[in-house]
């Protein structure tokens, strides 16, 4: 019978070779907080599981060009404990911190959160508004991919056979800018986001917004950038009118489904509420810089 193989390569080259050579379904194991649940529920029956945590760099956070490179398998708890990352992109850290319980935090990685490609992944909207870039290594070498281009639909990614996300680069942040991520869940913890909203914005010297990114989670087949939401902020002082326009744009951009976690109308409404609330936090942070 086809039993699952478990491999622990010690280099990216070996990992890529293993994945590329496999005939059946392959899975990469980072924190395993999604993978093991899927295995136990027999939702997946992979031929090969490649544990990437013994590959150098996979668990490291390093400073680079004023930003940070985070190994794709780094557990959220490590990111949370990293003062530099927290200072630079607090919204990303907050989003990573929201992925499950403390126990889950000890394992769950932002690389895994990205590649699991759940539309509700908390860290993804936050990384997208931070203009994060994934380094993808595969049989044909390495490429840099904006985070928003990794997931293509629920459980689907743009990664080719044999490709691995090795790290995620969070760039330096412009002056007078701030980011934030908020999500709505029915309880205070332990739920999957019903709606998530990530915002980053940059102000000029007199407090006018010069650049903004707005990204929503759990309201479409993947995290979506809301161009109209950004437009609603750019050129304004991010006053109440601008925030209302942002909320309206966010709700208009949402195209959610009804499911066990929330209704279409609920998600649509709350997308606007969270975008507005997150923008206020981001604004405070931008002003504090």
């Amino acid at each position: 019978m086809d039993e699952m193989r478990y491999e622990t390569p010690e280099s990216l080259e070996d990992a890529v070779a293993l994945l590329a050579a496999a005939k059946g379904e392959t899975k990469i194991l980072a924190g395993g907080t999604d993978l093991l649940v899927q295995l136990r529920a027999e939702m997946i029956e992979p031929e090969l599981v490649v544990d990437v945590k013994r590959i150098p760099g996979m668990l490291d956070i390093t400073e680079e060009d004023g930003g940070f490179r985070i190994g794709a398998a780094t557990p959220s708890a490590e990111i949370d404990e990293h003062a530099g990352v927290k200072k630079l992109w607090p919204g990303v850290v907050e989003a990573a911190e929201l992925i499950g319980s403390v126990q889950i935090q000890g394992r769950a990685s932002i690389g895994g959160n990205l590649c699991n490609a759940s539309p509700a992944a908390d860290s993804v909207p936050a990384m997208i508004v931070a203009a994060a870039v994934a380094t993808v290594v595969g049989p044909d070498g390495s490429r840099e991919v904006p985070v928003e281009d990794i997931a293509t639909g629920p459980g689907e990614t743009s990664l080719a056979k044999g490709e691995i996300v090795a790290s995620i680069f969070l760039p330096a942040r412009p002056a007078h800018s701030g980011d934030a991520y908020l999500r709505f869940i029915p309880r205070t913890e332990m739920d999957i986001a019903v709606v998530g909203a990530g915002i980053s914005l940059t102000l000029d010297d007199d407090g006018t917004c010069t650049d903004a990114k707005v990204c929503l989670g759990a309201v479409a087949e993947r995290a979506i950038l809301v161009e109209d939401g950004a437009k609603a902020l750019i050129g304004t002082k991010v006053d109440d009118d601008a925030l209302e326009n942002l909320a309206a744009a966010a709700s208009a951009a949402a195209r959610p489904i009804d499911d066990k976690r929330g209704t279409k109308e609920f998600r649509t409404h709350v997308a606007g509420v969270l975008a507005r609330r997150a923008a206020k936090i981001a604004l405070d942070r931008a002003k504090g810089n």
């Binding site: 309880r187 205070t188 913890e189 332990m190 739920d191 999957i192 976690r261």
Partner: peptide
């Protein structure tokens, strides 16, 4: 049944 687990059958947690 669509929510046969503690993820989506939401019993109160300590912070609730």
């Amino acid at each position: 049944l669509e929510n046969p687990g503690f993820l989506d059958y939401r019993i109160p947690v300590a912070s609730d």
